[in-house]
């Protein structure tokens, strides 16, 4: 396959960025999208040019490191992570636009790499449980109803990649925050911090400069793990409940 790539190039956080055009040839349909970018970078290095910086780690769709907005879609045309997207989703001769996540809470560090530490600070605000350290306790000692376990697991699938923020026209982190809150709030292990978790994590989300939800549903469409839009509804319900409890 021969492709034309239009890639966002930006030297550093303070520099002005722009789209640069590159031609790549000899791309196999079986290559992953990131392998295609590796091919481009090898050519750039040989030519003595600065390779394109992009985030990646596990390359098997479970770590949440890879990003990229491909032709206007977070993680590209398939419902998966960029690392699990393959070139067979494109045609020979295609022009592909590659841009970084866009949100003021996710400033560009270089090229396609953005600073997602705002997510870490949201987790630090309440995305944990209070548990004594030591050996893992006997699992059967804490019964969890099956529907609750399923609900928790559905939300625990969030890998924190930030595609929801990138896809949202308001740069909102509602889907990420709600997934993390719902995952723990429904379980007995998360019960001691049920109220403070939702209040503190939502407050941190606001402080980081993320936008609000206008229920366009773009986040849930982009999510590679299929976190449902109703996750946000559940978070709203938890937040209202926590405000009532704390007032009492």
């Amino acid at each position: 396959m021969k492709l034309t790539l239009r890639v966002w190039r930006q030297k550093n956080a303070d520099a002005e960025g722009a789209m640069s055009t590159y031609e790549v040839d000899g791309i196999s349909q079986d290559m992953s999208f990131l392998e295609m970018l590796d091919t481009l970078n090898e050519e750039l290095i040989v030519k003595g040019e600065d390779p394109v910086a992009f985030d990646h780690d596990c390359r098997e769709g479970i770590c949440g490191a890879c990003s990229l907005v491909i032709n206007g879609d977070a993680h590209g045309p398939e419902r998966t992570t960029t690392c699990q997207l393959h070139m067979r989703s494109f045609q020979d001769g295609d022009t592909i636009d590659i841009e970084p996540w866009r949100a003021s809470a996710f400033p560009v560090i270089k090229d396609l790499v953005v600073d997602r530490t705002a997510f870490d600070r949201i987790i630090q605000a309440g995305g944990y449980i209070t548990a004594p350290t030591g050996a893992a306790p006997e699992a059967h000692s804490t019964p969890v109803p099956k529907p609750d376990a399923d609900f928790a697991f559905e939300h625990a699938e969030c890998i924190g990649c930030g595609a929801c923020v990138a896809a949202c026209p308001n740069g909102a982190a509602m889907l990420f925050t709600s997934a993390k809150i719902n995952h723990l709030n429904v379980l007995p292990q998360g019960a001691p911090e049920r109220e403070t978790r939702v209040l503190d994590m939502v407050a941190q989300m606001d402080d980081e400069g993320f936008g609000g939800c206008t229920l366009t549903g773009e986040c849930a469409t982009a999510c590679p793990k299929g976190i449902p839009l109703f996750s946000i509804t559940s978070m709203n319900k938890e937040w209202l409940r926590a405000n009532r409890k704390v007032a009492r």
Binding site: W8, M19, G72, N170, G211, T216
Partner: peptide, 22 residues
Amino acid sequence: RDIRARPSKYVHKKPSASYATR
């Protein structure tokens, strides 16, 4: 808040959301 949170637009634009939503 929403407009501040997304200051730079994507170069590759996609039509999104329903008419009522937009």
